Simulated scan of single mutants.
Amino acid sequence: MANKALIVVDYSNDFVADNGNLTCGKPAQKLEPYIVSRIEAYNNQKQPIFIMMDLHFEDNHLHPESKLFPPHNIIGTPGRELYGKVNDIYQKIQFSDHVHFLDKTRYDSFCGTPLDLMLRERHIDLIEIVGVCTDICVLHTAITAYNLGYNLFISSQGVASFNETGHTWALEHFKNSLGAYVEYQS
């Protein structure tokens, strides 16, 4: 039996809410029940949950994303808070030993974070990834996870993007190039 962990990528107000600074909008909002159900399932089994959250600072023109995207997930702003019911459940379980909130400053959840070390300490060999954006932060996280030797599970119910073409391409890439188990749901 695999030791598994859930990674929730960037499910913040700025990426999900209608008024978010870099929102995926309705496609991301539709993920909410699925992500909540996955958090509840992992929490009930006391399995590791990693909330990976994009972190930016006001007027940081040195960050490479500043040339590509509008300011988003600025520290101390409501845009950086978890969206909706995902935030509600996180508030209830955040002090549990198996729940971890990690800041990230790049698309890849592993880059510059202790994520790999924490997964290895827990003997994790299978990671389930949910969140946004399928073809940006989820994709870069999945590629590094693959390169580090983790098995991957990604459900189409758990990821979204503001670019439908990129979303579809990334799901196929997870399956065909990373060997991920991809569950397709309509």
Rank of each mutant, 00 (worst) to 15 (best):
I49H: 07
I49R: 07
I49Y: 06
F50Q: 05
F50W: 07
F50V: 03
F50T: 04
I51R: 02
I51H: 10
I51A: 03
I51C: 04
I51P: 01
I51G: 03
M52K: 04
M52F: 05
M53Y: 01
M53Q: 12
M53L: 15
M53P: 00
M53N: 12
M53R: 13
D54Y: 00
D54L: 00
D54N: 03
L55A: 07
L55T: 14
H56Q: 02
F57L: 15
F57H: 15
F57S: 13
F57T: 12
F57E: 14
F57K: 15
F57N: 11
E58F: 14
D59S: 13
D59Y: 12
D59K: 15
D59R: 13
D59M: 10
N60C: 11
N60L: 09
N60R: 13
H61P: 00
H61A: 12
L62K: 14
L62M: 13
L62S: 14
H63Y: 05
H63D: 11
H63L: 06
H63S: 10
H63V: 06
P64S: 06
P64N: 03
P64R: 10
P64H: 09
P64Q: 04
P64K: 08
P64I: 06
E65Q: 08
E65M: 09
E65C: 03
E65P: 02
E65T: 06
S66L: 04
S66P: 05
K67T: 13
K67W: 12
L68N: 14
L68D: 12
L68E: 13
L68Y: 10
L68I: 10
F69G: 04
F69I: 10
F69A: 11
F69V: 11
F69T: 09
F69W: 14
P70K: 10
P70W: 05
P70V: 05
P70G: 07
P70D: 05
P71R: 08
P71C: 09
P71A: 14
P71I: 06
P71T: 06
P71Q: 09
H72F: 08
H72G: 09
H72P: 07
H72W: 05
H72Y: 06
N73V: 10
N73K: 00
N73P: 04
N73G: 05
N73H: 01
I74C: 03
I74S: 02
I74R: 04
I74M: 02
I74T: 08
I75A: 15
I75R: 10
I75D: 12
I75L: 15
I75G: 01
G76M: 03
G76K: 10
G76I: 00
G76L: 06
G76Y: 04
T77C: 05
T77V: 02
T77N: 04
T77Y: 04
P78T: 03
P78H: 02
P78W: 01
P78R: 04
G79V: 08
G79D: 05
R80C: 09
R80V: 10
R80E: 02
R80W: 02
E81F: 09
E81Q: 14
E81R: 12
L82H: 01
L82Q: 01
L82V: 08
L82W: 08
Y83K: 01
Y83M: 02
Y83W: 02
Y83N: 01
Y83A: 01
G84C: 07
G84E: 03
G84W: 04
G84L: 08
K85S: 14
K85N: 14
